[in-house]
């Protein structure tokens, strides 16, 4: 647990896979599939935002969609009105993060208990959803961009090269750019988690009272963690908006928040890889189920979720990891017994 990040093979493998996909993906994989994977990449960034605050900060938010939607709308409005997507991408991180600071300040300095925290984040999401749905009239426009109520905002521009508003990324470039964002977010989070700031976050997750009794300001700590998660969720919202070139109030829906929770739970709270696998597995499943048109895919997803929670209560990655560790220990013990006695004593 305390070995430095640079000596963790898992970290390098993840970065390696990410970069390999980034470079080789568009060469070897057909465009339709690449665009499909692009969607997983965007949602993975979203999943990481919750994986971080929940797994490494102990903050269980039912309102991650509020920040996702806020980022999506921020990007939509600012990119249409500016005509360039570079600053809007920055804003789609900064504005949700700033809102995360405000909401986090209210929740953590107000010493809200975990249950109320869940309720407040959920209610905030609902308020955003309601508000966004009520912006149908022409009077609801920001910087000349109409919010469009339940119809949403169409014609959101594709990402362009910085300073060249007409040089849009083609689908392969968009995939590479998003993949780079995912890798950067992953690396930044891993560095943060391995830092003393991250260690203290884990301490707060383990025992808030002790963290405070060691002299750490847990409120300030949690606000920072929460705001960072909010910013990342906002960024993923912007990626979603430009990927679809369209955004509507469903970005703020409870379904969006619930999906993030399900991905993280299925993949394993307290890992970053798990939630990414959760996105890929469950989104793929939803797609297949949607094509079969047998059952409502949400119902089936819910059922799968229940099975997962019962069968793998800790989530996929932690379960596989401890199974591997147990297998490894067994294998070593087996070797130790069959080998000479000095092998056994060296086991201490």
């Amino acid at each position: 647990m305390e070995k430095p990040l640079t000596r963790d093979p898992g970290f390098w493998i993840m970065v390696g896979i990410g970069l390999a996909l980034l470079v080789l993906g568009p060469i070897f994989i057909d465009m339709f599939t690449i665009m499909q994977i692009t969607q997983y990449v965007v949602l993975s960034v979203f999943a990481l935002s919750l994986a971080y605050i929940w797994g490494f900060g102990g903050i269980l938010s039912f309102g991650q969609a509020a920040f996702f939607g806020l980022g999506a709308y921020t990007f939509a409005v600012s990119s249409i009105s500016i005509g360039d997507t570079t600053l809007p991408l920055v804003l789609s991180f900064a504005i949700p993060a700033a809102f995360g600071v405000a909401l986090g300040y209210f929740m953590f300095y107000g010493k809200l208990s975990d249950v109320y925290l869940g309720v407040v984040t959920m209610v905030v999401t609902l308020i955003f959803w309601k508000l966004a749905n009520h912006t149908a009239g022409p009077e609801y426009s920001i910087a000349g961009v109409r919010l469009g109520g339940f119809n949403g905002i169409p014609s959101i521009p594709t990402i362009n090269f910085p300073g060249q508003p007409d040089a849009w990324l083609d689908p392969a470039q968009l995939f590479r750019f998003f993949m780079a964002v995912l890798v950067v977010v992953y690396v930044v989070l891993r560095i943060l988690i391995a830092s003393d700031f991250g260690r203290i976050s884990i301490g707060i997750r383990e025992n808030e009272t002790r963290a405070a009794l060691l002299g750490y300001d847990i409120r300030r700590h949690k606000v920072i963690v929460f705001a960072l998660g909010s910013g990342i969720a906002g960024l993923s919202g912007a990626m979603w908006a430009t990927y679809q070139s369209f955004i509507d109030p469903n970005a703020f829906s409870m379904e969006m928040s619930a999906k993030a929770l399900i991905w993280v739970m299925a993949g394993g709270v307290g890992t970053l890889l798990g939630p990414i696998l959760g996105v890929i597995g469950l989104q793929w499943l939803t797609l297949k189920l949607g094509m079969m048109e047998l059952l409502n895919s949400l119902v089936v997803l819910g059922a799968i979720m229940m099975v997962l929670v019962l069968a793998l209560p800790k989530g996929l990655v932690p379960t596989v990891k401890s199974a591997c560790l147990a297998g490894w220990a067994l294998w070593r013990r087996g070797r130790g017994v069959s080998a000479s006695a000095k092998k056994v004593t060296s086991d201490d």
């Binding site: 647990m1 305390e2 003393d196 260690r199 203290i200 884990i202 301490g203 997750r205 383990e206 025992n207 009272t209 002790r210 009794l213 060691l214 002299g215 750490y216």
Partner: peptide, 19 residues
């Protein structure tokens, strides 16, 4: 009140690290 999920070393180090 201790940090159950982490090692003895890390528990004590986090205390020392405050100062």
């Amino acid at each position: 009140n201790v940090f159950d999920g982490i090692s003895v070393y890390e528990n004590v180090r986090l205390s020392a690290r405050r100062k």
